[in-house]
Each structure stands twice: as structure tokens, then as C-alpha cells.
Amino acid sequence: MILNVLLSGLSLAAFYFILSAGLSLVFGIMGVLNFASAGYFVAGLYAAWFGLGHGWGILPAFIFAAVVGGVLALLVEVSLLRPLYGNVGGQILTTLGVMLILDEAVNWVFGPQIQQEQMTGLLSQTVMFGGMPFPVFRLLLIAVGVLIFLLLALALRYTGLGLRVRAGVDSQTLAELAGVRVAPLRSIVYALGGMLAGLAGALYGPFSGVYPSAGLDTLLLTFIVVVVGGLGSIPGTLAASLVIGLAEALVGFFVPSLALTVNVLVMILVLLLRPQGLLGKPPGRRDTHAA
């Protein structure tokens, strides 16, 4: 039984990680709190719903969701954010505007009602763990979460692009001084953030339904994960996802009425003890080389 609870926690953690990793990465390289990520999330949610509704099968539908999120993000970065380079505050307000527009556009086109997504075949089944049924879809969620973490971590650690991205996150000025062109890196990372948000949206549909305000509803969790983990840190995001996901599952099992509260309590606790987040750096370090 406890195994079942732990697996639920892990599947939540996997979802939170995919949901928040993009936001964290984008903050790392752009310094932008990317509200629009909630918009790409909703776009991905509906894209997957559309694909599944047309009998595409889960893999093409989910890839489609990620692509929709990524393409939207790329368009936004190139047309709206890039001209505001150097004006971080303006960029944040712009991403807020993009989120509002995307949410409302989805609401306009598909209506405010909740659509249900039906999984078929193996993914609609459950397996028994410790005498309790556990949905196969949630196992898939864990697998995808692990896969995304490994891909991100390995790509950042072992590829040239990953090295340049990390250099840009460390200091954009120093990266330029080392001959790295930072502008395309920003576009790439921002589009990647959009893809992850879109994929997270696709993964959200099967267990919570498809509705326009889903993005805003999950934004709270994203922010909690990112505050707890430390902005811009992928391992921090993973650690925070695990803490929040497992705490939510365990507390939800033993004290169901506190399930929602526990996230916020964890966040407040972390803030009190470690304001920079689990794996963030202490405040005060600036990019001293910036103009």
C-alpha cells in the first residue's frame, strides 16, 4: 500500500519536474519569469486532446503537443521578446500578456467546458502493486519524467550546445567575451521551455481533464516547485519536484484534507530556512561584468 502511495508521489514528482524544468531553464538564461509557459501548457493540452480525438495514438499526439508549445514559444521569442532584450521587466509583462492571450484564445475556440480524454489499450489499464491498483499511465509519467531529466542533464553536461548554454546562464557577458553568440541560445532554450510546457500539458490531460484555465491552475505548482528548488537549477528542480510530489502523495494519503496545503507549507518552510531554494545560490551574486 505504501508502495502505491510512493509511486503516486513519484508520478506527481515526474509531472512537476516536466512542468517546471522549462521555466527554470528559461529563467537561467533569460532572467525572465516566463508566465507564457502556462499558455504553452494549455496549447499542448489542447493539441494532445485534438490529436487523440482524431485517433492519432498517444506518441504522435504528445509529440504534436510538444511541437505546438515549442513553435509558439519560438514565435513569441523572436517577435515579442527579442526586441525587448535588456528589458527584463518588460519581457515578464509581455509573457504575462502572452499567457492571457493564449488562455483566452483557447477558451474562445474550444469553449470553457471540461473535455475528457480517454486513454485506450494498455494505458487505460491498471496494474497491481501491493494489492492496490495503479494506473499504467502514471507509470508512463514516471518514465517520461526520468527520460526528460536524463536527456536534459546529459545534454547540458556533455554537448557543446549544453556547455554554451551553461556558460550563458553563468554570465551572458563572459559568454559573449568567449565568442559565444547568446541570442540564438536564448531562442533555443526558450523554444525548449515551450516544448516541455506543451508536453506537460499533454501529460496533464488524461488525469485532470482538458480545460482552458488548466495553465493558470498549474502555474501555482510550477512556482512552488521553482521557489523550493532554486531558479535556474535543473537538479534543484528535480529535488523540489520529488519533495513536493512525495509530500503531497503521503500527506494526501494520511491526512487527505491537508493535501493541497502541504505544498504551500513546504514552500514556506523552505523560505524560512533557505530563502535561495534547496539548490540555489545565496543572493548577492551578480553578473558583475554586465554593462
Binding site: R166, A167, D170, T173, L174, E176, L177, V180
Partner: peptide, 30 residues
């Protein structure tokens, strides 16, 4: 700036200007 760097200009600021979060090897590799 990045083009000037590729033209062979290298600037060492007073704190050394190394990437704090990268390893020594990665700093060199970049």
C-alpha cells in the same frame, strides 16, 4: 562583442572572468 572575441580579442577582467559554475576543463574548452 562575440565577433570581436572571434577576431582574436581576449579580455581578462580584474576578477579573472572565469565561469564560476563551469569546471576548469569546461572553462578551457569553451
Amino acid at each position: 562583442t562575440w565577433r570581436r572575441a572571434r577576431e582574436g580579442l581576449f579580455y581578462v577582467p580584474e576578477d579573472g572572468g572565469v565561469f564560476q559554475d563551469l569546471s576548469v576543463q569546461e572553462n578551457l574548452k569553451l
